[in-house]
C-alpha cells in the first residue's frame, strides 16, 4: 500500500491529525513550566487516545478513557496540584530540569519496549475490520480468559490504595 493510498483513506487522515495533536500535546506536557497547563495538555493527549480508540471502533475503551482518565485521574491530579503548589499568579513554577536527559532516556526505552511488544505480538499485518461493538467481547475476555490477571491487578490496586492512605495519613501522635 502506497503512502498516497494510505492518506487517501479518511480514517487515516483523522488518525494522522489526532496523532499530530497528541504528539504536540505530549511535548507540551513535558516542556511546560506551568504545572496546571501541563495537566490540561495531558487532557488533550488523553482525549486524543480516546479518539484513536473510537477510530478503531472500541467505543467502550474510548469512553472508559474519558471517564476514568479525564474525568477522574486528571481531576485528581489537578485537585492535588491546586491544594499543594499550583501558583495562583501567572509566574511560572520553575520545574526541576536537572534530570531531563535520564527522563528522556526512560521515555524512549518505554516507547521502544511497547512498540516492540506490540509488533512482536500482532505483527505488521492489517487486522480484520470489526463492524460490531467490542464491549461484549471485552467483557468475555476480562471475566473469562483473563479473570485471574484481572483480579490480581485489582488486588494490587487495592493494596496501593491502602498504602496510599497509610502514607498520607499523619500520625495523630505527632
Amino acid at each position: 500500500m502506497s503512502l498516497g493510498d494510505w492518506i487517501g483513506q479518511s480514517e487515516n487522515l483523522v488518525f494522522l491529525a489526532v496523532g499530530v495533536v497528541m504528539l504536540a500535546a505530549g511535548f507540551w506536557v513535558v516542556t511546560s513550566r506551568n504545572l496546571v497547563h501541563a495537566v490540561l495538555m495531558l487532557v488533550v493527549a488523553l482525549a486524543g487516545s480516546a479518539a484513536l480508540f473510537l477510530l478503531l471502533g472500541a467505543e467502550f475503551v474510548a469512553w472508559t478513557v474519558v471517564l476514568v482518565y479525564i474525568g477522574a485521574v486528571v481531576v485528581l491530579f489537578l485537585f492535588g496540584l491546586m491544594i499543594t503548589r499550583a501558583p495562583l499568579r501567572r509566574d511560572p513554577l520553575p520545574l526541576d530540569h536537572r534530570r531531563r536527559w535520564p527522563a528522556a532516556l526512560v521515555a524512549v526505552a518505554v516507547f521502544a519496549t511497547l512498540a516492540y511488544a506490540t509488533t512482536a505480538f500482532f505483527g505488521w499485518e492489517q487486522g480484520e475490520a470489526v463492524e460490531r461493538s467490542l464491549t461484549g467481547d471485552l467483557g468475555e475476555l476480562l471475566f473469562r480468559r483473563f479473570v485471574i490477571p484481572f483480579e490480581a491487578v485489582s488486588f494490587v490496586l487495592l493494596a496501593a490504595l491502602i498504602g496510599g492512605i497509610v502514607l498520607a495519613r499523619k500520625d495523630p501522635r505527632e
Binding site: 509566574d91 511560572p92 513554577l93 520553575p94 526541576d96
Partner: peptide, 11 residues
Amino acid sequence: APTDRDLLAVH
C-alpha cells in the same frame, strides 16, 4: 520580577 533561576533556587 524574579527570574526562573531565582525561583528555582527557592524551589
